[in-house]
Nucleic acid binder design. Sequence first.
DNA 1: GTACATTAAATCGCACGCGATTAAATAACA
DNA 2: TGTTATTTAATCGCGTGCGATTTAATGTAC
Lengths: 152, 152
Amino acid sequence: MDNSSKDDLLQLEKFLCFSIYSAGHAFNRVYKPLLDNLGLTYPQYLVMVTLWQEDNQSVRSIGSKLYLESSTLTPLLKRLEANGLVSRKRDPEDERSVRVSLTEAGKNLRNKAEEVPPCILDATGLDIETAKRLNRDLRTMRDQMEAGGQKI
Amino acid sequence: MDNSSKDDLLQLEKFLCFSIYSAGHAFNRVYKPLLDNLGLTYPQYLVMVTLWQEDNQSVRSIGSKLYLESSTLTPLLKRLEANGLVSRKRDPEDERSVRVSLTEAGKNLRNKAEEVPPCILDATGLDIETAKRLNRDLRTMRDQMEAGGQKI
DNA sequence: GTACATTAAATCGCACGCGATTAAATAACA
DNA sequence: TGTTATTTAATCGCGTGCGATTTAATGTAC
C-alpha cells in the first residue's frame, strides 16, 4: 500500500464509525431538552418506548430489543422504578425473570412523549424519505455486524 | 392525529436515532477485539487518530474535532499519558492551553492501527461506495443538528 | 493600569455501557 | 432422583460522556 492510501485510511472524516459516533452525540444534544421535560434520559426513553409498545416484559426481552446488557438495564430500571414509572416483580412462573411493567404514571407519560419524534425529525433536516432510507441502511449494517460476531 | 399514526410515531424500529444508537454499539463490539490489541479504548483510538493526523494539539482542538468536552478528554488524556502514548504540557505562549503531543510509542502505534479500518469496513458488509454515501449523509445530518442548537 | 469579561482545563456528580463474576432458579440428563 | 449445565438478574470495576462549577490565564474596556 502506498503512502497516500495509508493516509486515507486514518482520516477521521472518512471513518463511518466516527460519523455514527458523532451523530449519536448530536442526537443526544437535540433530545436532551425535550426529554428533560419528561424527566427521562435518552436510554430511559428507549426503555419506555419498548414498554409502550409491549407492557410487562422481562429485563432480558428489553435488553434484546435495545442491545443492552442486564448490567446496564438493572440500575436504569431501578431509577425508573424510583421515579414511579415502572414496577419490577419476579415472574411467579419463572423466578429467574423480572417482569417490568408500566405504572399509571408510566402509561400517562406516553401522551407527552408522542410530541418528541416530530421535533427530532425536524432537527435532522432530513425529508421523511431520506430518513427512512438512512434508517434502513443503518439497520442492515448493524444486523450484519451483530451477526458477524456469531460466526462459528 | 389518528391512532394508527400515533402508534407509528413510537415504533422503536422507525427511530432513526435508535438505529444510530444501536449501530454505534455494534461498531464498538466489532472494534473492541481489534483495539484491545492496541491497548486502546474506542474514544482513545479516536484521539490517537486525530493526533496522527496533526500532532501537538490543544485539548480544545481535539475536543472540537471529536465533539467532546474537556470533562471527557482530560481524564482520557491522562490515561493515554499514563500508558506512555502522549505527553501533556502547558503551552508556554498561553498557559491556559495544554498541548498534547505523541511520544515515540504513540507515533509507532500508528503502523498497527492502520490495519484496523479495512477490518471494520469488512465487518459492516457494505461495499465502499455505499459506505461513503452513508458516511456523507450522516455527516450532513450531524452538522445540521449541531447547527440547530446555535439558532439565535 | 485596574476592573470586568472571556477562555481553557480541570474537577465533581451522575448516568450510562460492558466484561467478568456471582447467586439463584430452572432445565437437561444420566 | 440427583448431578450438572444453562439461564436470568444482579453486582462490581472501569471508562466514557456531559452539565455545572472552579481556577488560572488572557483579553477588553475604561
